[in-house]
């Protein structure tokens, strides 16, 4: 059995991620997307409950919430962080090599996923994981 975390944590993190990625998209800043890539890397490798955004949630937001915590499996948000890391790394490489178009596209996809998660509770793992498995094992 895998670890369960407060389901409101990843949703909060998705809101912050949306804002940071929106800033990255508008300013085309290498530093902003590089920062978000590091956050994604922590979420993907250690777990989404260890990112700076999750720590803000734990220390500042959670004590002020009145609703009861619903627990969720840590694996779905961790999968989403891994996908986000992929897009952010492409954006970082694009920025360093001066590929402005690719930077915009990569950040746009990451932003769309984070925004959908924050605003509509979109489950990236539900929609993508099976398709990836099917594509990988297709003969």
């Amino acid at each position: 059995m895998s670890v369960s975390i407060d389901a409101r944590g990843p949703r909060w993190s998705a809101v912050i991620t949306t804002v940071v990625l929106a800033i990255a998209l508008v300013t085309s800043s290498l530093w902003v997307i590089a920062f978000q890539a590091v956050v994604f890397a922590i979420g993907a490798l250690r777990g989404p409950q260890f990112t700076p955004y999750a720590l803000i949630f734990k220390k500042l937001i959670k004590p002020r919430l009145k609703s009861a915590a619903t627990l969720e499996d840590v694996r779905p948000p961790q999968f989403a962080q891994t996908v986000g890391l992929g897009f952010a790394l492409v954006a970082v490489i694009a920025s360093v090599t001066g590929a402005g178009g690719l930077f915009t596209i990569a950040v746009a996809f990451a932003l769309a996923a984070a925004f959908l998660n924050a605003a509509f509770n979109f489950c990236l793992g539900c929609e993508m994981y099976l398709l990836i498995l099917r594509a990988r094992t297709a003969k």
Partner: peptide
Amino acid sequence: PLAIVLAGATGFGI
């Protein structure tokens, strides 16, 4: 680009 992404994602989200 930001406007396009947010509009597209909102439509898809609904």
